[in-house]
């Protein structure tokens, strides 16, 4: 770990200023310190924001939920309002990491965690995300945990969060504070696809800090499910995960919001999948059609080819569950 100057921000302005001047923000630290110990990340300055007043979760005037960026994953998962009204978010949080990590990891930090790509983590290996232009060693290497959607020839890393997958399905927005004031954006706008610049992962500007996540009001009469498939029964990253928020209108699907983990460089969502489902009567054929759409551009990299059938199977099972459709005999 490289030496750094440590400063504790007493207020948000000091924090955004420090970040604008090149400091790296530390909150829970569960991923940043992990990476700093390996010198995958080597900031010269750290600004500690843990004592800022961003620890509250409260209803917005419009009936949504404003989650402070420093709310821990544990507190968010255990929040009674979240458990009752946004259960997919609790479920996703509880499917991730461990009790100890969730007690430390924060909402903002969870969104901004880096990929778990083995080659990103090993400074002796080429990695365009860590060292732009050095190459992607994962594409031709061991890539069991890598992306099948949204990757580029420069980077095939996945985003490892469970929480963010549920948030994406819930149409969450992040509130961002910078020197120029506050702005809000959806997760689709927060995250960037790797393209030719996999080292640029978000659209946050230099001095911007995530201050909150805003959930819209709870979906009405919707079934919410988070399903995670992994290599051991606990404490493993998703091979595939599906967050589903689906509402029925009689025998037909009124609204479907589906997000996916383990498949792409960001929590994945595909509007065409949802449009294919909405207004339709659930059936295995329909679910196959939705899976076809989701996976139309899917590309395996060798060791992760299995994610294509696994994603199909998992999506179909989740759709059966939320629409209470029997599997064909």
């Amino acid at each position: 770990m490289r030496p750094f100057d440590y400063m504790r921000a007493e207020d948000l302005q000091a924090a955004t200023e420090a970040k604008g001047n090149g400091a790296t923000v530390i909150a829970g630290g569960t991923n940043l310190l992990d990476l700093m110990k390996l010198e995958v990340m080597a900031p010269e300055r750290l600004v500690d924001i843990t004592r800022l007043d961003l620890h509250n979760t409260e209803r917005t005037s419009g009936g949504g939920l404003r989650i402070g960026a420093l709310v821990t994953n544990s507190d968010l998962a255990a929040n009674p309002d979240v458990r009752r009204n946004w259960p997919v978010l609790s479920r996703a949080l509880l499917a991730g990491a461990t009790g100890q990590l969730r007690n430390k990891a924060t909402t903002g930090g969870n969104l901004l965690q880096r990929t778990r790509c083995y080659y990103f983590y090993d400074t002796a290996m080429p990695c365009n995300k860590r060292e732009p232009g050095s190459g992607c060693h994962a594409r031709t290497g061991f890539n069991r945990i890598h992306a099948i959607l949204g990757a580029s020839d420069k980077c095939i890393a996945t985003h490892p969060s469970d929480m963010a997958v549920a948030m994406r399905a819930l149409d969450a927005e992040v509130e961002v504070q910078g020197s120029g004031g506050t702005r809000r954006m959806g997760l689709d706008a927060l995250y960037r696809l790797p393209g030719d610049t996999p080292h640029i992962e978000t659209s946050l500007a230099e001095g911007e800090i995530i201050t909150a996540v805003i959930l819209p009001p709870p979906p009405t009469a919707a079934t919410q499910v988070y399903r995670k498939v992994r290599d051991r029964s606990s404490y493993a990253f998703a091979l595939v995960s599906v967050a589903a928020v689906v509402a029925m209108d009689g025998a037909r699907i009124r609204e479907a919001r589906l997000a996916f983990g383990g498949l792409g460089p960001m929590p994945w969502r595909d509007g065409e999948v949802e449009r294919a489902l909405e207004g339709q009567e659930p059936s295995d054929a329909l679910f196959d059609c939705a899976s076809d759409i989701l996976l139309r551009d899917a590309q395996g990299q060798g060791s992760n080819d299995f994610k294509i059938p696994l994603a199909r199977r998992t999506l179909k099972a989740v759709l059966r569950e939320v629409t209470r459709t029997e599997a064909p005999a």
Binding site: Y6, R8, I26, G29, T30, L33, D48, Q100, L101, N103
Partner: peptide
């Protein structure tokens, strides 16, 4: 998890935080 301690009433991994924080 071998480094688990209780910090302000909550169990955490003491390896993933800085003493100065």
């Amino acid at each position: 998890g071998a480094c688990t301690i209780i910090l302000n009433g909550r169990r955490i991994n003491s390896c993933l935080t800085l003493a100065v924080m």
